[in-house]
Design a protein around this nucleic acid. Sequence first.
DNA 1: CGCATAGTTGACTACGCTCAACCCTGGTGG
DNA 2: CCACCAGGGTTGAGCGTAGTCAACTATGCG
Lengths: 204, 204
Amino acid sequence: MSFLSPDSLSSNVRAAITYQDLVPGQALFQQGDPTAAMFGVESGRVRLSRNTSEGKLVTFQVIRAGESFAEAALFSETYTSDAIAEIQSRVAIYPKQLLVTAFRENPDLTEDFVVQLVRSIQVLQSRLELRDVRSAHQRVLQYLRIIAEPNDTNLVIFDRPLKDVANDLGLTPETLSRALGRLEHEGVISRAKRQIRLHDSAVA
Amino acid sequence: MSFLSPDSLSSNVRAAITYQDLVPGQALFQQGDPTAAMFGVESGRVRLSRNTSEGKLVTFQVIRAGESFAEAALFSETYTSDAIAEIQSRVAIYPKQLLVTAFRENPDLTEDFVVQLVRSIQVLQSRLELRDVRSAHQRVLQYLRIIAEPNDTNLVIFDRPLKDVANDLGLTPETLSRALGRLEHEGVISRAKRQIRLHDSAVA
DNA sequence: CGCATAGTTGACTACGCTCAACCCTGGTGG
DNA sequence: CCACCAGGGTTGAGCGTAGTCAACTATGCG
């Protein structure tokens, strides 16, 4: 990614970046914590989520290697969600104050930063839109289409348990399993464990 | 609001701002249109929404007088949603290129802008979280709590049809009606048409 | 006064959730 | 090498709740 790549930062900024390793399930920060920094995932996978009062887990975004997160934290007093490592991960820490001052001197950096924010908004919007699809198998199909689109290849490979995917979709694992089964039965997709191929009939 | 208030803009920027009046139902822009500007609502009410392939209407945000919208458009090629006037409205038009250059010269303005973006993200996050509450009456209650919180008074007054509110919540008007009826019956709220009072038992 | 729209209520349906049992895989240790 | 185990995934049965369709009332506006 271009944003926050080493050569886009001045040396003094680069020097202030530290790193942290996280074990699976470890929290980097929690909702309500005072904001101290934004982060980039060097390796592994971090989930931004929140626990509702009813005990449900709402996932806002899943951050993978090369992506940044908690951009919004730079302009907020506290974090608005939890950040949990789903697997062993390594994150880069960009101290808040440091970046804010860097932005004031470097408009290009700022612009890249804003682009990231906009991207977050768009991700959240599609997630919200997805939730308005009531029928489980339509929602799953839509989800697969969204994931498959960028690659353009009609292949979707999940790198995490289907039960997590189900949760992202606002479904139970059982319902997701049945939905996938039905889609396969209808000939819309074919699948081998976590690899799913969308047939042409799924594009329509 | 502080952002884009007249005195925070240089005179040449101010001069380039134009205005447009919208009749109820009129679209200011539609998803896919090339982005030309961001906007502020001078008076009236504008809805940012999208029509799904299944014919549903997903509302991302409702913009009221004094608020700005389509900030994300400044850093995107096309608009990602429709902007529809829900009632007679007047919007200020801030041309894209103009603002982008203004940002490069005015870090304070940029920071205010970013704060707006962050706010959008937080709004979307709570909307998404709300959707994870399955039971209708719990969801409605949660929604009322969120709306009531800032004012701190336990009174919620809707300025638009309940069927629109229902749609925001991902419910049908019938279900919302029943949910409100039930909450009232349980003594959690009391209501007179579109005015709703939350009782202390609703805070828990 | 009459029409259109919003809101309410009722009966029925359908779909996803819950709970439970079962299979399958990968990993661990004897 | 196999026995065991834990977690993920699948399948089944039954239930509950929100959606749907319809009829009716209430409200606002010409």
